[in-house]
Amino acid sequence: MEADMSLGRELRDYATGMVLALILTGTAFGLTLWTQWPVRTRFIVICTCAILQLLVHFRYFLHIDLDKSHRDDLQLILFSSLIIALLVGGMLWVVFNENMRMM
């Protein structure tokens, strides 16, 4: 009985994730296809959709939330994000700087 109840809850979680992911994907593609907004605005909205969809997938498909018992993998995600930020940020900074000097 209890098992069936949490089956329903988890099923709803996956469905919610799917619907949210579809909405965000649709927004990003629709914006590219059908709107004539300035490129800068579309760029920002599309990037925001990607970040939101990342969070949706984490929350509803990978079941990672801010729960206390998730501390280890949350810390690992934060650490990996730091590494990614340093490597990617540093690389973009250096390479674009070099590009500019080559002009």
Binding site: T25, A28, T32, R42, F43, I46, C47, Q53, L54, H57
Partner: peptide
């Protein structure tokens, strides 16, 4: 894939 379709395809087409 979210990031591939966003950064490669969508922003590339933009």
């Amino acid at each position: 894939w979210i990031f591939i379709f966003t950064f490669v395809y969508l922003l590339g087409i933009l």
